[in-house]
């Protein structure tokens, strides 16, 4: 099972990377407002002045 010497560090590295991105994004305020983004995606802008395709 010496392969674990590779797999476990890699997994930890990935987990560490994930944690880092979580921390950075939390500091960046990505989790302040967890309601409005769900609405915002419905408001794609359309070609200047026209209605979006439906």
């Amino acid at each position: 099972m010496s392969i674990l010497f590779i797999l476990v560090p890699i997994a930890l590295l990935l987990a560490g990377g994930a944690l880092l991105s979580f921390l950075l994004s939390a500091k960046n305020g990505q989790y302040e407002d967890l309601e409005t983004p769900a609405y915002r995606i419905l408001l794609d802008d359309c070609k200047s002045g026209e209605k979006p395709n439906d």
Binding site: Y31, L34, L42
Partner: peptide, 18 residues
């Protein structure tokens, strides 16, 4: 992305999705 867009409603719980 596509379910909300196709149904034109927001995700049921955005918090849950995070």
């Amino acid at each position: 992305y596509y379910i909300p867009k196709a149904a034109n409603r927001p995700v049921y719980s955005y918090r849950l999705s995070i």
